[in-house]
Amino acid sequence: MDKIYSHPVSLRDNSTHYCAGCGHGTAHRIIAEIVDELGIREKVIGLAPVGCAVIAYEYWNFDCSEAAHGRALAVATAIKRVRPENIVFTYQGDGDLAAIGTNETIHAANRGENLTVIFINNAVYGMTGGQMAPTTLAGQKTATTPAGRDVLSHGFPLKISEMLALLPAVKYIERVSFHSPQEIIKAKQAIKTAFLNQINNIGFSLVEILSPCPTYWGMSPQKSLEWIKEVMAKEFPLGRIK
C-alpha cells in the first residue's frame, strides 16, 4: 500500500472505483501532485474521457469536463483557444485516443494545439469488458480476439505516438511505464515536462503511459507489472520519442 506523505490538494479524498492494481489511480495521483507542485490548480482544466476514467472529475479537485468518446482533443482545442491563460489537458485511453478519436488526435497534434495529453495505453478496452484495442499486442487474447490478436486480420498494434512524432507541429512525445517505482518517477517527470511545455507555450505534448489492467489481462497485479516490463515494453519501447 502507498504511504501517503501528504494528500495533494488537487486530489479529492474519494476512494476510486478502479480495480486492484489498475494504473488509472496512479496516473490520477501523479497528475494531481504535478498540478499542486506547479501551482496551477486554479488555472487547470482537465478533460475526462469515456473509458474507465470517465469520472476522473470525481477524483481531481479542479475544473473538469467530460468529453464524448474520442473527442477530448476537439473539446480541449476549443477550451484552450477560448482561454489561452488556462492550462488544459486531456486524459485518454487507447480506444479513446487511438481508435474512435484518431482523427481528433491527429488533427489537434497537426495544428500544434498548446495542450498536454496524457495517454493511458493499457492494451485493451477496460470499460466495455476487455475487447481488443488498437494497441492490443499480437497474440494477446481479449474478449473480441479470443484466439489472440491475429495481426493479419486484426491489424498490428498501432503506434500512434510514433505516428504523431512525424508531425512538424508536435513538440514533445515520451513513452513511460508504471511497471516499477523507478519507472513511475520517470513517468512523473515526463508528465511534468508536458505540463511545463504548455505553461511555457512550447506546444503539443503527449505522454503515453503503459498502464496495467489486471482485470482484462487476466493476471494478478504483480504479474501485470512483469508483463509490461517483459512483453508490452518490447512492442512499445520506452523513452523519448520526440
Binding site: S65, A74, V75, A78, V82, H107
Partner: peptide
C-alpha cells in the same frame, strides 16, 4: 475542423469555457 464531429465537440468545449 477536421470533421463535423470535431466541429460540434469544439463548440461543446468553447461553450463549456463560457464563449
Amino acid at each position: 475542423a477536421e470533421s463535423e464531429l470535431a466541429a460540434i465537440n469544439m463548440v461543446y468545449g468553447a461553450s463549456a469555457a463560457g464563449a
